[in-house]
Simulated assay, not measured.
Amino acid sequence: MSLALSTKNAFPVSFPLPSAAGSIEAYVQAANRMPMLSEAEEVSLARRFRDEEDLEAARRLILSHMRLVIAIARGYLGYGLPHADLIQEGNIGLMKAVKRFDPERGVRLVSFAMHWIKAEIHEYILKNWRLVKIATTKAQRKLFFNLRSMKASFSTLGPEQVKEVARTLGVKPEEVVEMETRMSGGDIALEPTGEDEEERYAPIAYLAASETVEPSMQLERKEYDRLQDEGIKGALATLDDRSRTIIQRRWLVEDGEETATLHELAAEYGVSAERIRQIEAKAMQKMKGALAAAM
C-alpha cells in the first residue's frame, strides 16, 4: 500500500511506504528494517532531491527516518489517541522536513526533522484531544506539552514545584496551577449513568430550572436544534457515498460507538491513510459551504 501526499503537504507522488493500516507491530518491524544512512549518503541524497527533484532520493531519506517518527509518536500515547494516527501525522511532518532540508547547513536530517515531526503531532493532538481545546495561548500549549513529564514524580505540584515549572517554562505560576487542574480533573457525569447508589446524586439533581426558560423559549430551542440537524443532513447529502461514510464514521457516530481511525478506513477502501485524510478534509470543506449557503 502507498502513502500519498498532496503538493500542499509534501510531495505530489505516491511513495511505496510500509502501511500502518494493518498490524502496528508489523509496521514497526518493517520500519526498523529500513537501512540507516551515513552522513555522506544523506548529504548525497538530499542534494539529488534538491537539485534534480529526484523522488527516489527523497523516498530513501524518508524510509531511513521512519523509526524516528515511531519513537516520537510513542511519547504521545498518553493523550489517548491511536498510535497509528500519531505515526501518520508524524510521517507527514517527516516528509515536510525532507522537502525543506538543506544539506549544506551541516546539520543531520534527524535533528532537523524532529521539529517538523513534533509540530505535526502537536497540531493533531490539539485538534482532537477534547481537554486541549481550551489550551489556546502560547503559554497554555507550552504547559500542556511539558507539564505531564515535568510533574511525573509528583502526585500534585507543591508551591516550590509550581515556581520551578513556571521558571523553567517561562510562564506565570498561576498558569501552571490552572493547567495542572485542567489536566488532572476528571469528567463528572451530569446525569446518572448506572445503578450505583452515589450516582443518584449526580449534578443534575442540584440544578434548579431557570424561571426564565418559558415554553416559548423551549420551543425556539427545539426549532433551532431541528434546523441544525436538518442542515447537517442536507450537507451530508451533497457528498458522494464514500465521503459521506467517512465523515459519519469519523465524526457522527452514535453514543457508545467508537470513531474509525484513518488507518481502519484506509484498510477498508484499499487506499492510503493520507488519501482518507484528504477525502475527509475535502468533504468537510464542502459541508461548510453547504451549511453556509443554507443559513
Rank of each mutant, 00 (worst) to 15 (best):
R244T: 00
M150E: 09
L131N: 10
S216M: 07
L143T: 05
S155A: 14
I134K: 14
V165C: 09
A237W: 00
E211F: 01
L207Q: 14
Q140C: 04
K133P: 00
E195W: 08
V176P: 00
R167H: 11
E195P: 00
V165F: 08
V165R: 01
M217E: 12
D187G: 07
N128L: 03
S243H: 03
G158T: 03
P173N: 07
E230C: 02
S216F: 05
D187I: 06
E178R: 11
F154H: 13
V162M: 07
E191F: 10
S155D: 15
E160G: 03
V177P: 03
R141Y: 02
K133R: 12
T238S: 09
E195G: 08
T137F: 05
A209E: 15
I121E: 10
P173D: 12
K118C: 10
E160Y: 01
L143E: 09
A202V: 04
I188S: 11
L126I: 00
P192H: 02
E160D: 12
R221S: 12
K163G: 13
N128K: 01
E220Y: 04
Y201R: 05
D241T: 03
E198A: 14
T168G: 02
Q218I: 07
A208N: 13
Y124R: 01
P159S: 15
G170A: 04
D225I: 06
V213M: 12
E164Q: 09
E195C: 06
A152H: 07
G231P: 00
R148Y: 10
P215K: 02
G185N: 09
L169Q: 06
E223W: 05
F145K: 02
D241G: 05
H115K: 06
K142R: 09
N128E: 11
Y206S: 13
S153M: 12
R141M: 04
Y206H: 14
F154D: 15
F145S: 07
F145C: 09
E160T: 08
D229C: 06
D229R: 09
A205F: 11
D240L: 02
W129C: 05
D241S: 10
R167W: 06
I134M: 13
G185L: 10
A235W: 00
W129D: 09
I117F: 06
A208D: 14
E198C: 08
E199R: 01
E198N: 05
K133E: 15
T212G: 10
R167A: 15
G194R: 01
E174N: 13
E211Y: 02
K133I: 02
E223R: 06
E178A: 14
S243W: 01
H122A: 09
G194D: 15
K163I: 11
T137V: 01
R130G: 05
H122Y: 13
E195H: 10
E123A: 14
D240T: 00
Y201Q: 12
M183K: 02
W116Y: 15
K118E: 15
A235N: 02
K172M: 11
K118L: 07
Y201F: 15
S155N: 13
G158Q: 04
S210Q: 10
P192F: 04
R148S: 11
K163Q: 15
E195L: 13
T137I: 01
R167Q: 12
A235F: 01
K127C: 06
P173Y: 04
S243E: 08
W116I: 04
L227C: 10
E120K: 09
T193D: 14
G170S: 06
P203N: 08
K118H: 06
R244H: 00
T136P: 00
T136C: 02
R242G: 01
G185E: 14
V171I: 06
R141S: 03
